[in-house]
Design a protein around this nucleic acid. Structure first.
Lengths: 199, 199
DNA sequence: GTCTATACCCTGATAGAC
DNA sequence: GTCTATCAGGGTATAGAC
């Protein structure tokens, strides 16, 4: 991971943008090569297959998602932890729209080996949120029926950010994050007053 | 729409299942024909192109979604309307997982004409939810900052049901709907006590 | 309406010169 | 590491017999 040919990163960047725009199956190796001004055959000097590029992108995204939303969580009460999680998660989503889009649109484009690898990391991420919800439920801070269902409901809600955010340049990331913090906290029964309003 | 060849419906059913399973671009006309025990060329007696099959499926789904979640809304207060919307929406999602999956995974597989047609119907659906939220906000029943953001947050959350529901045979549709009613109502600041717990 | 046969193009991947 | 050239297979769609 020390020194890497610049072309390899160009391939990653082009593939990320194209996969997000058109979908994995609608993008050809010729498309990727054309986007970086190279010939199709040359890509195989850096990745052994098209599938490998997809797995590489998803893997890297999950690593950075963990670093943004899970790793820096404070070791305090569930409310503060959930709020910090939402902020980190939304920030990562807004800053990496293509990766997020690929992450949950192209899961079924993964073949057996890659799928196992990616799902394992995904499950760890979801488990971290579930743990926060369970802690809050146990302490009486949160109100909901089923932690597993609620964790998925929250992740689905937050995942939707990137589906529409790129079309809506109107709101600033901070405002969007604020809205989601309120929506999530209220969804677990915690009252929350947004510092700013509307805008 | 009166009398239609049975094969046309077989094609629809096979395409729906295959598109949902593998994605539009990963499914070939040969696959669809094979699934109904016919020859690829014969499909063109019923649909002029593969793209037409996709538009047909999405169009029909939106019509039924409207009938399930929007049309039967009571003309009462926003809280009751929102609750009824969530129940109708979740019921439709759970009963039509393949259609829902296609509806939001294959938007980008639509070509220009079909895209305009489908987006128009989609926007009308989203606008109906937005109207409920605005009414509730105006009357003081709901608490959130931005109706447009919150409408999308709710639809994203509800849309997530089908992403995982098929893997989780554990909970009954009624229980799942109950969880989502609570999550949505609480997300707009309305307290809600679920009739049943956990399970 | 369904079949067989096929046109024509694009796909992922490889071989080998430079 | 990049290029040119190419392979084998599969893609959508069409033509024409029955």
């Amino acid at each position: 991971m020390a020194e890497e040919h610049a072309t390899k990163q160009f391939i990653r960047n082009a593939a990320r943008r194209l996969f997000a725009e058109r979908g994995y199956n609608a993008v050809s190796m010729r498309d990727i090569a054309g986007a970086i001004g190279k010939q199709p055959g040359g890509i195989y000097n850096h990745f052994p297959s098209k599938q490998t590029i997809l797995v590489d992108l998803m893997e890297e995204n999950l690593t950075r998602a963990h670093a943004a939303a899970i790793a820096p969580l404070p070791d305090t009460d569930p409310v503060a932890r959930l709020e910090a999680f939402v902020r980190g998660h939304v920030k990562h989503n807004i800053e990496n729209p293509d990766d997020i889009f690929i992450a949950y649109m192209e899961l079924r484009s993964l073949e057996a080996e890659g799928a196992a690898q990616i799902m394992s990391k995904r499950n760890a991420y979801e488990a971290a949120l579930r743990a926060i919800l369970r802690d809050g439920q146990k302490s009486g801070a949160f109100t909901f029926a089923d932690p597993a269902i609620h964790a998925r409901a929250i992740l689905s809600m937050l995942g939707g950010v990137t589906v529409w955010y790129r079309d809506t340049g109107a709101q600033s990331p901070a405002v969007v994050a604020e809205n989601y913090v309120q929506a999530v906290l209220q969804s677990v029964g915690v009252p929350y007053s947004a510092p700013t309003k509307g805008q």
